[in-house]
Simulated scan of single mutants.
Amino acid sequence: MNMKSLLTLLLLLPFAAFAQKKMTVNGKMTNLPDNTPVWLADINNPNDTIAKAKSLKGSFVLKGELAEPKLLILSVGGDKKSNVFFDNSTIAIKGDYTKPASWSITGSTVQDGFKAFETTFVPYFEQLNKIGMRMQAGERSDSLQLSANRLTGAIQQEIDAFIQKRPGSPVSAFILLATINLNPDINQLEQRVNRLQPMAMNNMYGSYLKQTIEEGKTTAIGSIARDFTQNDTLDNPVTLSSFRGKYVLIDFWASWCRPCRLENPNVVQAYNRFRDKNFTVLGVSLDRQKKSWVDAIHADNLTWTHVSDLKQWDNAVAKMYKVQSIPQNLLIGPDGKIVAKDLRGEDLNKKLCELLGCN
């Protein structure tokens, strides 16, 4: 190679190396009528069309640019749809237009990971959903709960296997987010996230995970409960740390919250049963009207300490503990650490029996 050719190559290399790669989707389908509209949209915002085209002789080409790999909806003709996980790759789609389940999608390792996710996890989700529907219908049994626990445990094992195999895939971050409600252990979530590579986390799913971990540490089991002070019904300041040395249930509720009022008898029963065993309750109300708050306390016979700043959802303590729904509670140990959370009904009694004894 002469000097001129070498200089030309060196000048061109930076542009080639840093050129922005775009997404190209080449579709070839049987039974696909001409002029059938085809488009890709963000699954979280179906009105956000990322690329669109019309078919001709069974083929179509979609071109676009994604800021990051993400879950999309591929729609062919409006009535044939498939969830896909695309990045800026050259992707090929083949299959029968009338049978979305038969579509073969190749050319993207991210999509390959998503297909593996669907194959592995969706059957578990479907089984859990069926059990959930049976429970909502009023069916309760030890065997049903055992089946749910077994499925949840299997999912946790599959999560670890998946992210171990694909630590650099954005789909791994997506899976951790998609299954976050199946495991309340924020510390385990953080450990899993720490096993992922930056290329897996540099996206919206990674950002949500980091935010969830940061917020979750506020209420993570084993962490020190954040101290606070709020006024009681007589406008006297009450500080959480003043209960140090006791087990205390921080109970978030409100007079206008029907599920809270239905749960109150369970809390009353637990309080009466364990109050002589180093246990108490601290009610934090998300009320706005003081009279409604105080009247509900008397009506439901809630004889423990209550505080509120009467700012409803802007209650400073509720915001501190990231409370987004009520009823919600945290059980704090004598050392100020969070022992358990969201204990309702018999679960509260079981936990207190475990800690304080029932004899």
Rank of each mutant, 00 (worst) to 15 (best):
N26D: 12
G27P: 03
G27N: 05
K28L: 15
K28V: 13
M29Y: 05
M29H: 04
M29D: 08
N31E: 06
L32S: 05
L32G: 01
D34L: 06
D34H: 03
N35A: 14
T36H: 07
T36E: 10
T36M: 13
V38N: 08
V38E: 08
W39Y: 12
L40C: 09
L40H: 04
L40A: 08
L40N: 04
A41V: 02
I43Q: 01
N44R: 09
N45I: 05
N47E: 14
D48W: 12
D48H: 09
T49H: 10
I50Y: 08
A51R: 00
A53F: 08
K54Y: 15
K54S: 11
K54I: 15
L56A: 15
G58R: 02
S59H: 15
S59E: 13
V61P: 13
V61S: 15
L66V: 02
A67I: 07
A67P: 11
K70R: 15
L71I: 04
L71G: 04
I73L: 03
L74V: 04
L74S: 06
G78L: 03
K80V: 00
K80N: 00
K80D: 00
K81V: 05
K81F: 01
N83G: 12
N83P: 14
V84I: 06
F85A: 02
F86E: 02
D87V: 04
N88G: 06
S89L: 12
T90D: 15
T90A: 15
I91F: 02
I91E: 06
A92H: 14
A92K: 15
I93E: 06
K94V: 13
Y97T: 04
T98L: 14
T98N: 11
K99C: 10
K99S: 15
K99N: 11
K99R: 11
K99G: 10
K99F: 11
P100D: 00
A101F: 12
S102Y: 08
S102D: 15
W103V: 03
W103P: 11
W103T: 03
S104H: 14
G107H: 05
V110W: 00
Q111R: 11
G113L: 02
G113R: 09
G113N: 10
F114R: 00
F117W: 01
E118K: 03
T119R: 15
T120H: 06
T120S: 07
P123E: 10
Y124L: 06
Y124H: 09
F125L: 11
E126C: 07
Q127I: 10
Q127G: 10
L128T: 05
N129T: 08
N129M: 09
N129L: 04
K130G: 14
K130A: 10
K130R: 09
I131R: 03
G132Y: 07
G132A: 07
R134S: 13
R134G: 13
M135G: 09
A137Q: 07
A137T: 06
G138H: 02
R140L: 14
